[in-house]
Amino acid sequence: MSKLLRPKPLAIIIGFLALLVISILFVRVPLPTILLPGEAIPGLAIGNFKITNTFIATLIADIVVLALAFLAVRNMKDVPESKLQNIFEWIYEIFEGMLTDIGGKEKAKAWVGVFLTLLFFLLFANWMELVPGIDSIGYIEPVEKAYVEKGVTVGYQVKHLGPFITLTSEQVKLSNEEREAIKKEAEEVEAAGQEYHPHEPKGYVLTPYVRAATTDLNLTIGLALLVVIWSHVIGFRRLGGKYARRFALPVITGMKPIDLFVGLLEFISEFAKIISLSFRLFGNIFAGQVLLFVMAFLVSFLLPLPFFGLELFVGFMQAFVFAILTFIYFEQATHSHAGDEHH
């Protein structure tokens, strides 16, 4: 206790407390609008394909991964001069060794590329939720418009800071009557063939330009579908017709009813794989993002700090789990069905 009473620690503690008080009393941040789908950015579209903020994040993650990877292998030396090359080789060796432990040398060599691509891509996609500016820089639109398009009911008042507009923490909620009125007005305007613009917006909502890519279900389900289908392709390639037997697909004569049941279970487990892979990744990152939002909403300074550390860990862990499960699925697909050896 006496240690805490020395001037330096005391000053730090008082500073922290002051920061907490200031953040609670004066610096309040709005709770960002929490939406599941990636939000399309107006004016950014390729033909019919509207580019969403999660898609932009995906592209950023791609660019970061590619840039780091190409920088690492650009003019490689036998005795590494760049730290990046060193780190890259280290990572490659560690994970190749890990995969060798799981599936043997040949399989590790074949699929370490998929593993590392998934790991790097998901790692940067996940960690993007931690980068300042992402989720907080975007365009502002009236809450009425957002209600018509996305069903958002809570907006915020805005403040002009020079050329910039910022949301304040003053909440504006649309009451049930207002919602009805807005809906009616929007329908009338659209029936006349025009775009709906509220005359006097009560509040505004912010749609970020960039949102962590793995908070979009399309990405996680897409990747899960991809790797599960890929594992079946690998299974067919390596085992041929034997692989189909595991699902009791061609009902061969002499097959017992239990085999059909096992095949059915295998079918179901394939869907369970897709669901669990995609929702594990999505859920962790989405929930982590909401957690960070809510913590910053409660106390804007200090309180979110430990959660950033937690999310750093979770982001890595989920990327790793997704990649290692992919490898395990690939590896399992190359085993013939347990019953085959006994027949």
Partner: peptide
């Protein structure tokens, strides 16, 4: 152990996702 915890935790995360969906999306 950490890997196992992550897998067990993801079940709670599924529940959390459902909760968040109910809360924010309805």
């Amino acid at each position: 152990m950490i890997l196992g915890i992550v897998f067990a935790e993801s079940i709670a995360i599924y529940a959390l996702v459902v909760a968040l969906l109910l809360l924010f999306v309805g």
